[in-house]
Amino acid sequence: MAYSEKLIDHYENPRNIGALDKNAEDVGTGLVGAPACGDVMKLQIKVGPDGLIEDAKFKTFGCGSAIASSSLVTEWVKGKTVDEAETIKNTDIARHLALPPVKIHCSVLAEDAIKAAIADYRAKAAKKDEPKAAAE
């Protein structure tokens, strides 16, 4: 099976490996897993005061395609608004990396991870607004 150059590049030189402070109010963390293959993926975003994603980090234990998919997503979301980042589809990831059909599920994991990170960020933001709303 031949893998694309882009995929190999993201696998061999993964971007944005690492972690952000998961307790910070401006950080959203998505932790998802694919039990069928035993993969686990953590993807985090840090949202700036201007509403743009200023940083993204990931840590993935899984196959090369899962690592490449999460690496690509962290690269894509930087500079985007949360709403824009939410529109990333696994099919976009799969197409960009030219994932072979048997590896499409790895891109699903990356899409679910960014969605989970966004949901976590929004839940924190909503909580932050709550006391204020109650005081009004």
Partner: peptide, 19 residues
């Protein structure tokens, strides 16, 4: 049935432990 290929889970406790 356990989730098949392409199905994800988001149980934080279980996944934190695995990670």
């Amino acid at each position: 049935a356990l989730p098949g290929d392409g199905k994800t889970i988001d149980d934080p406790e279980l996944l934190t432990e695995a990670m």
